[in-house]
Write a protein that binds this DNA or RNA. Structure first.
Length: 595
RNA sequence: GGUCCCAUAGUUCAAUGGAUAGAACGGCGGUUUCCUAAACCGUAAAUCCAGGUUCGAUUCCUGGUGGGACUACCA
């Protein structure tokens, strides 16, 4: 319809003012709720043709359109805005077509599908996942579903940061203080147990540094020469040399962590097609660095460390190999990127990584480019904002983190408590209830995170926790469950929907409102895929659910006497539930059939 | 010091350069013989400051103020 209007308006400009205007530049938008009309044309840009007031211009165009387009029922003009009303028949026909189309994503499909890798999660194997990781995982998984639904071939990958100095820290603390403790003997989840030793390292190390500072060492020397850090570095060198004992401990403790992560991923409902391990890619990276060094793309300093000079790119110099020959983080990222290109020949690789690493990815791209890899242009840093607490950033070392497993458990427990208060599910078997509470608890958590623009930092206040009322996941789930309940009741009454009757229904204003929202689905998904922004879909779900709840409140579906109208309401509600379900599916949020 | 990001009701979030800045939570006040009240309705409450571009600026540009991130032989 927008396109028809554009065409006709361009025609009107030609006929009325003898002017030529590019159809693409004609602004058609949905009429805002406060005004009557369905579509609004902003006439200001036309004034150079009409040489008249905005009001007169809008009126002229309105008259022309009404005379030349049968679908138009009327129009009104407010200032420079021409509000056009479309007849109800057009809307039911539109809904009828929408209802009968099987594939909701038909209009989202891209012409040229690409091979896209999405890297997300990227955990360190020295501590459990926290709320920040949850945001990462949810964004990554949702981006995957959105891009795939638009027709791309998407591969979910994960890079596990399982080596490096920080990994040695928890291992070292375990060797020193652990007395052979295991997940079995301690009863702790593996990732939490290892995390405990990481904290122990940091505590001991901090004490050593303070001690040295008191003795008059300067800050840098103190940090580098504290015994714990010296030992950790020695351990890393041993690890890189393949020292049997170090590797044994490393493997054992990492396996504990993986078991823990596996459980958290399962709870979150995310998974991966291919997992890369830093311990397997760092060597490639190191070789690549040495090769580039031979070609004088990189340079060696007197102490033996290897560097990239990026001052020509507006960046600094960046170390790639330490003076003791060990690899730093970016070395492995170079190796991983090359391995991925060889494995999948991707056109794009999305790195779902926090905005604190903006600089890192600039450097990574620049180095790969310097090394001659043209595909580095396809590396995209999907940079998202931090999850902050009211008092500021979460810091593992200071224990101010919201643990992923804890928050998930709490959300599910809250769902259970709220449900008990409402007392609607008493007749349902316990197993089914557990499943419902899991969906609701996680729905609340996931929606809370995904409704926020990924670029922005967001705040989580543990004291206030996450709502289950208002603009929330459970609100949308509830809307869905209500529709499903109506459907069940209709079936039990022997009422069947009949799409062939749709054509003769006359929609009320609320129904037109719903149809308008439903038809927007494809456009919203397309925009979300192009801007890599799941929050657009979350906000769409909310708008649609709210519109439906108002409708549901004001109109009876099954109580309607007129069979054509009742049928129309039933099918409209049914399609709304399908769209809600699908849109939430794109976010990785499950919908309960009842709640 | 340098680079980048952010600034909207008490709080958490919205708003392709368009109309009277939209929600939710919290506050206050209502709605249940009727398909699920995790709902619906009403009410008070906000664009950090100063310029500029524009018919029109929360949005774009410049400067300032305030907050954050990065700038490690950490990851």
């Amino acid at each position: 319809m927008e396109n028809i209007l554009r065409k006709k308006i361009a025609e009107a400009v030609k006929v009325l003012y003898n002017g030529a205007i590019d159809e693409a530049q004609i602004q058609i938008q949905e009429t805002r709720k406060e005004f009557t009309g369905d579509f609004t044309f902003v006439v200001f840009p036309l004034m150079r043709f009409s040489k008249n007031t905005p009001e007169k211009t809008a009126d002229d165009i309105g008259k022309y359109l009404t005379a030349n387009l049968s679908e138009i029922e009327g129009y009104n003009v407010i200032k420079g805005f021409l509000n056009i009303s479309i007849g109800g028949k057009w809307w039911t026909d539109l809904f009828s077509a929408f209802y009968n189309s099987e594939d909701l994503f038909a209009d989202c499909r891209v012409k040229n599908p690409e091979v896209i890798l999405v890297e997300y999660s990227s955990p360190n194997t020295n501590k459990p996942l926290h709320l920040g990781h949850i945001r990462n995982n949810l964004l990554g998984f949702s981006i995957f579903r959105i891009l795939e639904s638009c027709g791309h071939k998407v591969i979910k990958t994960n890079i596990v940061n399982d080596r490096g100095i920080h990994i040695c820290k928890s291992k070292l603390a375990w060797v020193k203080f652990g007395n052979g403790e295991t997940p079995e003997t301690s009863g702790m989840k593996g990732d939490h147990l290892v995390g405990k030793y990481y904290v122990m390292f940091e505590t001991a190390y901090k004490a050593e540094v303070e001690n040295l500072l008191k003795k008059g060492y300067d800050d840098e020397t103190a940090r580098l020469s504290a015994p714990m850090m010296v030992e950790a570095r020695e351990m890393l060198v041993k690890w890189e040399a393949g020292d049997e004992e170090v590797v044994r401990i490393w493997k054992m403790m990492n396996s504990w962590v993986y078991e823990g992560f596996e459980e958290t991923y399962r709870l979150l409902g995310v998974d991966f097609d291919k997992i890369y391990y830093e311990s397997e890619t760092w060597k490639d990276g190191k070789e690549q660095v040495l090769k580039a060094l031979e070609k004088n793309i990189l340079f060696r300093k007197e102490d033996g460390s290897v560097w990239a000079d990026l001052t020509g790119e507006g960046l600094d110099q960046k170390v790639l190999l330490r003076s003791d020959g060990t690899a730093v983080y970016i070395t492995q990222d170079i190796g991983t990127a090359i391995a991925r290109q060889n494995d999948y020949h991707f056109s794009k690789c999305l790195y779902v990584v926090g905005n604190e690493q903006n600089y890192h990815f600039q450097v990574l791209k620049a180095i790969l480019k310097k090394m001659g890899y043209e595909w580095s242009d396809g590396l995209i840093h999907f940079s998202y904002g931090m999850v902050e607490l009211p008092e500021g950033r979460m810091k593992s070392r200071e224990g101010t983190v919201v643990d992923a497993d804890d928050i998930i458990r709490e959300m599910i427990a809250t769902a259970r408590e709220l449900s008990a208060e409402l007392g609607k599910l008493e007749a349902i078997p316990d197993e089914d209830k557990d499943e419902i509470f899991r969906k609701i608890g996680l729905g609340a958590l996931k929606y809370f995170i995904l409704k926020v623009d990924p670029k922005k930092n967001m705040t989580f206040n543990p004291a206030e926790s996450i709502d289950f009322n208002g603009n929330t996941g459970p609100f949308i789930q509830y809307t869905y469950a209500r529709i499903k309940s109506v459907m069940r009741k209709a079936r039990s009454l022997g009422i069947e929907g009949d799409s062939s009757l749709l054509g003769s229904a006359i929609p009320c204003a609320k129904e037109v409102g719903l149809i308008k929202l439903l038809r927007k689905f494809a456009a919203v998904v397309t925009e979300a895929s192009e801007t890599l922004n799941p929050s657009l879909i979350a906000n769409y779900c909310y708008d649609l659910a709210r519109e439906f709840n108002q409708y549901y409140h004001d109109y009876s579906i099954l109580g309607e006497k007129d069979p054509v109208t009742r049928n129309f309401r039933l099918l409209l509600s049914g399609k709304t539930s399908v769209v809600l379900y699908t849109a939430m599916w794109l976010l990785g949020i499950e919908m309960p059939e009842r709640m």
